[in-house]
Design a protein around this nucleic acid. Sequence first.
DNA 1: GATGAATGAGCGTTCATTCAT
DNA 2: TATGAATGAACGCTCATTCAT
Lengths: 222, 222, 222, 222
Amino acid sequence: MSAVVSRPARRQRRKDARPQELTAAALALFVEKGFAATKLDEVAARAGVSKGTLYLYFDSKEALFKAVIQEGIVPAIEEGEALLDQPSDDPVQLLQCILFGWWERIGNTELGGIPKLMLSEARNFPEVAAYYHDTVIHRGLALIRTALARGVARGVFRPVDVDATADVLIAPLLHLALWRHSFGACCVRGGSVETYLSTYFDLILNGLRAAPGRAGVSRCEP
Amino acid sequence: MSAVVSRPARRQRRKDARPQELTAAALALFVEKGFAATKLDEVAARAGVSKGTLYLYFDSKEALFKAVIQEGIVPAIEEGEALLDQPSDDPVQLLQCILFGWWERIGNTELGGIPKLMLSEARNFPEVAAYYHDTVIHRGLALIRTALARGVARGVFRPVDVDATADVLIAPLLHLALWRHSFGACCVRGGSVETYLSTYFDLILNGLRAAPGRAGVSRCEP
Amino acid sequence: MSAVVSRPARRQRRKDARPQELTAAALALFVEKGFAATKLDEVAARAGVSKGTLYLYFDSKEALFKAVIQEGIVPAIEEGEALLDQPSDDPVQLLQCILFGWWERIGNTELGGIPKLMLSEARNFPEVAAYYHDTVIHRGLALIRTALARGVARGVFRPVDVDATADVLIAPLLHLALWRHSFGACCVRGGSVETYLSTYFDLILNGLRAAPGRAGVSRCEP
Amino acid sequence: MSAVVSRPARRQRRKDARPQELTAAALALFVEKGFAATKLDEVAARAGVSKGTLYLYFDSKEALFKAVIQEGIVPAIEEGEALLDQPSDDPVQLLQCILFGWWERIGNTELGGIPKLMLSEARNFPEVAAYYHDTVIHRGLALIRTALARGVARGVFRPVDVDATADVLIAPLLHLALWRHSFGACCVRGGSVETYLSTYFDLILNGLRAAPGRAGVSRCEP
DNA sequence: GATGAATGAGCGTTCATTCAT
DNA sequence: TATGAATGAACGCTCATTCAT
């Protein structure tokens, strides 16, 4: 009898897992080809189901797109926000945890294609873009801003425009993720990812660190 | 008869200008909607010609795409390379000229959409991506590398991994251009472009500048 | 055990009633939307069962259609034929009973949609149409012909072409039933059904009557 | 040169004629199979064009349906209304012209399928049904009502409920048209159309007539 | 050269039918 | 018996491409 209870009925198990199998297949293909160029036949085939099955779980191709974005990224951002709660005394280490954490939890996983996808399709799906902006980008940048502000407050970092700096800091990480899912598929990059990341962090840390000497910026006159 | 010869014949002028009018229209729409979601009807309409006329100048939609990339970007990169030839003694100023020059000549113009377009479509058009990589990205990064190398050689910049640093330096500029043609169309950004750019350049210049003190980077252990 | 036998078992009752519940649901929807536009999902939902259950009772959508026609109309026509057996001396009253009986037993009930359904689908289901023609239309008209022939034989009605007249006489009644299940759902008719029916019967009786004298119309009491 | 002017360019001629060719093909198939069961492939094939061509002239299948109804019937009803303007002294003859005129101009032509089509699809297209009701049915019945009213006013017809009588009078004619496009395609009717029509008119004329005297039926000469 | 009507392959979506549970 | 998840053929509609004018 216990066997009967414990057996989740393969059918049932499949049904529960289906949406995620489908969004995973769709994410991969949307990232690879873009939304419009992805055929639902392919998505279904990649998930190992027939085309009609897609419509048992998603009302339309557009609904599938929305689910891909929503289910893919929300859990990740919530994980990230938990970082702020742990009492870390060192702003440098906090910043490092946030930036490298992003890379390891998102950029370097299958979710790393979402920025490329969202970037490519933002203008075709303004509502989804707005949702993504508010839910993911804004909250992600807020993490970085918090770390920066703490560092500035403690005198570890120079006083900087926190908002603009956060935007600048995330750019090289996004760049790496975007590259992977675009040119990375057909062109070899020169250096290793590790070199890129350590060079990046070394550069920004030096840039942020409170130092004595400084030079003004003068516009280039062509 | 001489009149016929000397008259530049508006018709003729139009005919010569057609390809560029068409690629300009196509660029705008490809950037906005992506390659697959752009209809040739729309391209033709935006250029003020009929759909069939497109095929007098381009063999196919794909050929139009290639022309958009090719005609759009090659002149710009050649302009950029000229910067290296002018004898500028100051590596900082050279770097500034290259980076801000990119922004002013490309990022901040209608050509600024090409990175987004190329990024979105790289995997759908690997040959075009490879061409773009070799012709645009590689040569563009080479400019930055040269400036960096000069600065390091003269002791103005710390000794850095020039290749990786060039990649990192271009990222925030690309980021701005990508943003403009994606989320920028539907979401408001916080700060001004000027603040972003000066914060960016200030940060990297501080990061590059040869300074005494330095701390090691330790991995974050979550 | 006797309890088991005597208990009519709700389950059993349901099971026996299922086919009729299903054909009733199908009839309503076929009449409303037509055969092709009716989804089996809707039929099942209206009958309160799942879509798969339909296939326990009917082999296909077409089989369901045939059952709808067959089960719906055959009992009614047999009832009608019983009218001829009762010894009614008055041909006028017999005709009235047949015509108004049709209206009350068929036209004015849920079965009244069958003529519209059959009319709409006759060319898509020629065999069903032929069956319906032979089983329903022919036998129904035969009733009217018999009444007419008796009336002519007794000199109550003028000598008329009995076959053609039967066709003409049924038309206004059919018309009313067809209207109800088509325009009646979206457009208001002017007069009342009672006025229509009495005007109809008054007109045809005057048209049929042999002599100048005239009698009022009395309702047929079944 | 006159040849050049007079040649209407085959292409152009086709283009102008296309909508009517398409609605004619669609009418035939909609009548035969119903709206839902008709495939646009078939419509296109019957009109001798490809499927895509349909969409150059009609936005959707539903738009095609509306055009079929609208273009098919409006000219006919306007013709009918012209009958009232000619000064005919004889109400009987006027009624005959209207009723038989309907049969000859509509019922007995390819337009005769429209009543069946509209009847079948009225509940699926309520707006079209309402339009048809107001534009065709209402105006058609108004013709009959006018003829009846004149006859009653002159004492040629008995005093009857004009509205209800008009409904009754049109029913046998509609019946014939409906039959032709439903059972007529698969079942043989007994008598001839002529017998049916003369029996019909003889019956209703007797039913309407005020006095004992009676006249033969003479065909209406349009 | 320029047009735009015509094409037809292809895709998103639906739904009758099946079958494991 | 009853379910409903899964299927896949079919259909409405689109759009890159062609070609007669």
